[in-house]
Design a protein around this nucleic acid. Structure first.
Lengths: 180, 180
DNA sequence: TGGTAGAAATATCTGGCAGATACAAGAAGG
DNA sequence: CCTTCTTGTATCTGCCAGATATTTCTACCA
């Protein structure tokens, strides 16, 4: 098992769109993939070095002394396809909200209700974000061959967020009754 | 910051229901909280020892020499409430399916379609699981004060899974057209 | 009685990874 | 010229999953 294959996938994927510095890579991953992916500096630098050593990535000696722009190589593209083809690795489940609700009797009904309300509000504003993003990108990228794929990831976010709101409404309804 | 506070919360929560051995703890977390939480032995043992040292958990010298049944203490219950009251810690986003779809042009449309189909099928059988679980537990636990809370976590799973199916249908529809 | 398979149970090690932190250097602006 | 912001590179600590090793128990069969 190659080191950081998950991180490698995201890094190579981002570099396949455009050569970047490590710093810009983090920014791009946060801003563009942020809805479903995250990377930290602590992983990006070692991963980039490992990829360079394996020849999947090349340092383009930019004009600036201090800034190394990385670009993907031919073998890097091959490696990316290989990684993308690997079976999806399930994240270990760790949902703090559900854990708290499960022990809701211990936490108290009022606090549970507050948690669900906060979740609903967050989802509401998240949904607006998604919808703005969808419209903005439809205008900017609507013609590119990447657009159908990008679009489907945003749609997934919208579906998911809507279901959170619907669940929260049902739950608040169930928790609303009289005293404890 | 106390070590493994996330794990502590799950461990104390499980012990608040019933005293158990470390082994049974893992089983219980997997079987009962499995839909939204997971723990590994590698975390459970050190966490249990730390909790014992802090007096939040006590070893009940069972009849058997080798099996230590742990039970929660008074201070452990207080600690649990404290932990449950902490703000929910967001998991870093890491959705392998979305990452692959985002770079779908590189992966190829057919493979993307296969991934979405597989996701839909998994969600479909997951949904059936949830519904069976909901009915079984409604019969078994329907009267306990924990039931409304447990129920809401299962309902969350159902909402989420249904939205995955709906999204998959929309996506398969969009990806169905003629040749690449 | 004994033997053995499988379970229950305890424990450790490796390595991915997040988050915090430190630090350098150029840009921007007053 | 000073300061502050941004860009950029890098490391360290500690959480954590997953794999693996090892030791009891239990149950069943011979």
């Amino acid at each position: 098992m190659a080191r950081s294959s998950q991180t490698q996938m995201a890094v190579l994927g981002a570099l396949s769109i455009e050569p970047m510095t490590a710093y810009a890579l983090r920014e791009a991953i946060r801003d563009v993939l942020g809805h479903f992916w995250s990377e930290s500096f602590g992983q990006i630098y070692p991963t980039l070095h490992a990829l360079e050593e394996e020849g999947h990535v090349r340092r383009r000696g930019g004009a600036r002394a201090r800034s190394s722009v990385f670009e993907i190589t031919g073998s890097g593209t091959a490696r990316l396809i290989e990684l993308l083809s690997e079976p999806v690795q399930e994240m270990p489940a760790r949902n703090g909200l559900m854990l708290r609700l499960f022990f809701g009797r211990t936490l108290g009904r009022d606090r549970c209700r507050d948690l669900v309300r906060a979740t609903r509000e967050a989802a509401e504003s998240q949904l607006k974000e998604y919808e703005k993003l969808l419209h903005r990108l439809a205008a900017e990228e609507g013609d590119t061959p990447d657009w159908p794929y990008i679009r489907t990831t945003i749609r997934a976010g919208i579906y998911h967020t809507r279901s959170t709101i619907a669940w929260a409404d049902e739950t608040l309804d169930a928790f609303s009754g009289g005293p404890e």
